[in-house]
């Protein structure tokens, strides 16, 4: 027996395959919306580990989408920094 439903995709926020799949199916969402609804990819690593997995799930749910259609969206900071570090910049 396999346990794919409970398999963690986003390690930082512990979002499972089952949660992502049901959210994607229910809301027919974009990659961005899926992340905002589930918090997948919004954790400590900034999605560096799970972003490509989430994109693949969107491709799976939306039959007409190709990998190139999902925009590569990143926001600074791309590495975790303290508020002190960011605040010091004038």
């Amino acid at each position: 027996m396999t346990n794919i439903e409970n398999m963690i995709i986003c390690r930082c926020e512990e979002v499972t395959y089952g949660q992502l799949l049901s959210t994607a199916n229910e809301h027919k969402c974009s990659a961005r919306e899926l992340k905002l609804r589930t918090r997948a990819g919004m954790g400590f690593c900034g999605g560096r580990t799970c972003r490509v997995s989430i994109d693949k799930m969107i491709e799976h749910v939306k039959p007409n989408i190709t990998p190139g259609d999902i925009p590569l969206k990143y926001q600074p900071p791309v590495r975790p920094v303290t508020f002190g570090t960011v605040g010091e910049i004038k």
């Binding site: 409970n6 963690i8 995709i9 390690r11 512990e14 580990t49 799970c50 490509v52 997995s53």
Partner: peptide
């Protein structure tokens, strides 16, 4: 580069 993950149950 970074590595493509392959999620597997128990991989944390």
């Amino acid at each position: 580069a970074a590595e493509y993950p392959i999620p597997v149950p128990g991989w944390t």
